[in-house]
Amino acid sequence: MSYLLAAPYVIFMAIFGIGPALYALLMSFSKSSAVGPQYWAAGLDNYSLAFGDSRFFQVFGNLLEFLIVSVPLGIGFVVLLALLLDMRPGRFSSALRLLYFIPGAVTGPALVLLVICILDPTISPFGPLFNFVGTMNFDGLVFPGSLPFVFTLMGFFSGAGMWIAIQHGGLQGISAEVIEAAELDGCNAWQKALYIKLPYMRPYIVYQTILIFALNVQLFVEPQLLTSTWVQANVPPQWAPNQLAYSYAFDVGNFGAAAALSLLMVAIGLVGAVVMIRLTGFFKLEA
């Protein structure tokens, strides 16, 4: 009977999740040829091709830089803003929370379009600020070294409001008695935030870290539109690992290499996720 309720999910998982993934695994050991793929014929060739590509360490280095910048900054500022808003519940805080939340409606192509305009100092609303810092043109703001920060700013713009709202939901769970007791002991708003609320938020912060990590590893649409399709900015056309795999598949037609590279990404993502799950008990619901 239990199986009946899970059956639709299992079927869809087989067709649109596990099935394609296993086929990708098969392809990573196969040769593409004019008459179709020759299964298992490639051995580890596709993997060594991917490892040997000079762009391989470049794209994973880029991804690593992006993760190092985006995950701590994203989490840090979300927690800061959630705590600041929570210090004074009321209309002003609720209104700001909604204002922070609304840019979540801007994603994908619309987000890239907006960023291209905002990072063009000649038309940007922040143009005066950029001029003040001394940057007069788009290429002065968007270059290989700045991309981890550009994508972080984009992701934070679109995603932070939702996380602030989620953390707000979590903060509602602190019992009023605990807060009252802290006040009786003479805690001010900052001490309450630092010593009561922040420790309480720890599991929610871990949860956010895992999901942000999983999401950011997948970076594709934003760099693809920014670096190759729309403006041909002064940056390499394959910046993220996903882009390199996409290029193997659709520019070169080497599906085996694309699959090999993608599976390396799955492996990296899995190792990261498993480490975090082991450390935090992500699956543990049972008391």
Partner: peptide, 22 residues
């Protein structure tokens, strides 16, 4: 549960071609 986690992590670039064929 584990497969749920794994499929959440599958990158689009790995899935797109098998899915296209399918």
């Amino acid at each position: 549960l584990w497969l749920t986690l794994i499929t959440m992590l599958l990158p689009v670039s790995a899935m797109v071609l098998p899915m296209f064929l399918e």
